[in-house]
Design a protein around this nucleic acid. Structure first.
Ligand SMILES: [Zn+2]
Length: 401
DNA sequence: AGCCTTTGACCAGCG
DNA sequence: TCGCTGGTCAAAGGC
């Protein structure tokens, strides 16, 4: 019941922040799962006493600035606080605000690194400012910032034409992190309005069938209402034969994605690249269902009329794969974080992201990379503006690709 | 016919 | 050891 639709997206404009932190994760732990995929995680346990909280998620409403006062990049933003110094939160905020387009207020981005099995994974988080609605294509955000901007408005019809964006996305989106770092970028793109029949019609725009299309095909294998979360969490697996990549979704009633988490990496190419749209990732929720299938099928077939899902996705996903997983959250997270924190902590090990208060919902995207890297080849340039003891490093996006 | 979603139950980790 | 919680399984049903 629940589920909703999808949506979301955030765009990271320049304002995004990258956070690297080294937190150890335990990949080994499987938790209840059968697979022992490495799960690395990220969220932030609000409750955790962890000091590391590398990632701070700042709610859109908040201004990171407050947190950090670093003199460094403040150009657009008000101030950029350095993690070290002060409050992170604000930093994030700045981004959003100034980020540029009002339309896309990016909430924040964090990059975390955690160590798993000896490896370090980094998480990259983007938070979109959106309150309820998030722009659908996260992917784009990542790689492309402005492209989408227009659509976003309120999330409604971000993409009038998904296709176009997709294409764009492809082009620009590809984050190729060639570097040692494997990026995972998640994409949370989703259209949001679930209910709407419009989805069908509009396709991406509103559709929600797929919450996130990353170009892969996903099958829902469970849904649960997590305590602390207002919305039910949906579990998806990659349908590829040998692939065990999983995706967790939380959507609000509105259809907005509250959180998206990717686990594992795809060891296979995206299905039918040609169809980007439908390619596969289709996740649907209740309302979407019909669409979903359609999209999914479509994906396969090419029919995708709606599936538009996310065009952007295609490229982005890839990145994700490399990494462990990605998560996206929205404001709601706050509570969720707590919840998540628990398990995640376990699962992930220590990677924690500190939850910030989030009045609003923003989707958060966390990208996990395999290396410590400071460098992300995501097409953006990052400037380090702070560092924290725990290996946490904050980077600020300077120039988009 | 095949694939996917839904949903309740079960399993496992943690406090 | 028990209860809580998150994650997964698997049957049923739908498209
Ligand atoms: Zn896969």
């Amino acid at each position: 019941m629940d589920t909703a639709t999808t949506t979301n997206s955030g765009e990271p404009h320049c304002s995004s922040e990258l956070r690297l932190d080294g937190a150890p994760n335990d990949p080994n732990r499987t938790g209840s799962g059968q697979n022992s995929m490495a799960r690395y995680k990220l969220m932030s346990p609000a409750k955790l006493p962890i000091s590391r909280s590398p990632c701070i998620t700042i709610p859109p409403g908040y201004s990171p600035t407050s947190f950090l006062e670093s003199p460094v990049l403040l150009s657009n933003m008000k101030v950029e606080p350095s993690p070290t110094t002060g409050s992170l939160l604000q930093a994030l905020h700045c981004s959003m605000t100034s980020a540029g387009s009002p339309t896309f207020p990016v909430t924040s981005t964090c990059f975390n690194t955690s160590t798993v099995n000896g490896r370090k994974y980094s998480f990259f988080e983007f938070k979109p400012p959106a309150r309820n609605m998030v722009p659908a294509d996260f992917n784009n955000h990542v790689s492309e910032q402005s492209t989408q901007v227009e659509g976003q408005g309120k999330g409604q019809s971000f993409l009038s034409s998904p296709l176009n964006e997709n294409e764009k996305a492809d082009q620009s989106n590809e984050l190729s992190l060639s570097s040692p770092v494997q990026m995972v970028s998640s994409v949370a793109n989703s259209p949001v309005d679930v209910n709407s029949d419009e989805h069908n019609h509009k396709g991406n725009t509103a559709n929600g069938p797929q919450s996130s299309n990353d170009g892969y095909n996903w099958r829902k294998y469970g849904q649960k209402h997590v305590k602390g979360s207002e919305f039910p969490r949906s579990y998806y697996k990659c349908t590829h034969p040998n692939c065990e990549v999983k995706k967790l979704f939380e959507r609000s009633h509105d259809g907005q994605i509250t959180e998206i988490i990717y686990k594992g990496t795809h060891d296979h190419p995206k299905p039918q690249p040609s169809n980007r749209y439908s390619a596969g990732s289709i996740m649907s929720t209740q309302g979407e269902r019909s669409d979903n299938r359609a999209s999914s099928l479509a994906g396969r077939d090419d029919k995708v009329s709606n599936s538009p899902e996310q065009p952007t996705v295609a490229t982005n996903d890839l990145s994700l794969e490399g990494a462990g997983f990605v998560s996206t959250k929205t404001n709601d997270e706050v509570d969720d974080d707590d919840l998540f924190s628990k398990r995640r902590k376990t699962e992930l090990g220590n990677t924690d992201i500190i939850p910030v208060v989030k009045p609003i919902r923003e989707p958060r995207v966390v990208v996990q990379t395999m290396s410590e890297v400071d460098i992300l080849d995501d097409g953006y340039r990052w400037r380090k503006y702070g560092q924290k003891v725990e290996l946490l490093q904050m980077h600020k996006c300077r120039v988009p690709g």
